[in-house]
């Protein structure tokens, strides 16, 4: 635990010492601000809509695909290349603590980014608006859970290579793949199902099964159905927490496997 904390502190402070981070922060703030303002003015001052757009709109999902990849690249692939990962992994902290610390730092960074929407909400409250605070906070929490999941996915993907750009690319592909799971499943199985099932009923049964599984993996859907609506649902919470934990576990295994294979 101590190791995790130490690594977390260093990684987070390391992030904020790099110009890269501030540039990302600036871009995200400017674009999110644009979205928020656009919706605020476009809807004639509808606070809920504007906050919803800035917190959960398409832009958020674009960030969710790009940013974890960049962060994972910095935290894993670049360190692997420069050798600092070797330093960390021979320090008296467990591998998992290192993975966890890095993961927590990346997630915290994204959480700080999403906090901008809370600040918007605060600004509207100051001038007399009335944002639905519990719901807004719930959504904000949700964005953090989503970020955590995708950071974990990105970290796993970037452990497969020591070339930073390739790592970032792999992470991005992994994140997109995870988002596109329901779509992909539908597409792939629409070709495969007729091969397996001969009768109409069997085909339908297969289609239903595939859809069920796909919708179960669908991070976007899970988020839209719960946090976005201001609904705290234990099942959705469990979804995000367990999958994040799984990917972290796999990340630790993958780091280990790299040593094993040399």
């Amino acid at each position: 635990m101590n190791g995790t904390l130490v690594v977390f502190q260093r990684e987070l402070s390391g992030l904020f010492r790099a110009p890269f981070t501030w540039i990302v922060l600036l871009i995200v703030l400017v674009l999110n601000g644009l979205i928020f303002n656009g919706f605020l003015i476009g809807t004639g001052g509808n606070i809920s809509d504007a906050l919803d757009a800035s917190m959960t709109g398409p832009l958020f999902w674009i960030w969710i695909v790009f940013l974890p990849a960049l962060l994972a690249m910095r935290l894993v692939a670049e360190e692997s290349r420069s050798g600092t990962l070797e330093y960390l992994l021979t320090a008296p902290v467990s591998d998992f603590a290192v993975v966890l610390g890095k993961f927590a730092a990346a997630t915290a960074f994204l959480a700080i980014l999403w906090t901008s929407s809370l600040l918007y909400a605060g600004a509207t409250a100051v001038i007399g608006g009335n944002p639905d605070w519990p719901a807004v906070l719930g959504t904000w929490m949700g964005t953090i859970f989503v970020s955590a999941l995708f950071v974990a996915i990105g970290m796993l993907a970037s452990t497969f290579t020591a070339t930073p750009l390739l790592a970032a690319f792999l992470s991005m592909v992994a994140c997109i793949a995870w988002l596109a799971v329901p779509l992909l499943a539908g597409q792939v199985f629409s070709y495969l199902i007729p091969l397996i099932a001969k009768t109409e009923e069997a085909r339908n049964a297969w289609a239903t099964t595939v859809r069920d599984i796909a919708s179960n993996m669908d991070a976007f859907g899970h988020f839209q159905r719960s946090f976005r609506l201001g609904l705290l649902d234990t099942a959705e919470l469990v979804f995000f927490v367990t999958w994040t934990a799984l990917f972290l576990f796999l990340t630790a295994r993958s780091l280990e496997a790299r040593r094993w294979r040399g």
Partner: peptide
């Protein structure tokens, strides 16, 4: 790991840290 000092060939140090910060980090890890 606790009882060795290991210096890999690549001399892995965090370039964005100051020397004393790097040392403090090492101290905290240990």
């Amino acid at each position: 790991r606790r009882s060795i000092g290991y210096l890999p060939e690549s001399v892995p140090l965090y370039p964005e840290l100051r020397v004393d910060e790097m040392m403090r980090f090492q101290g905290k890890l240990h």
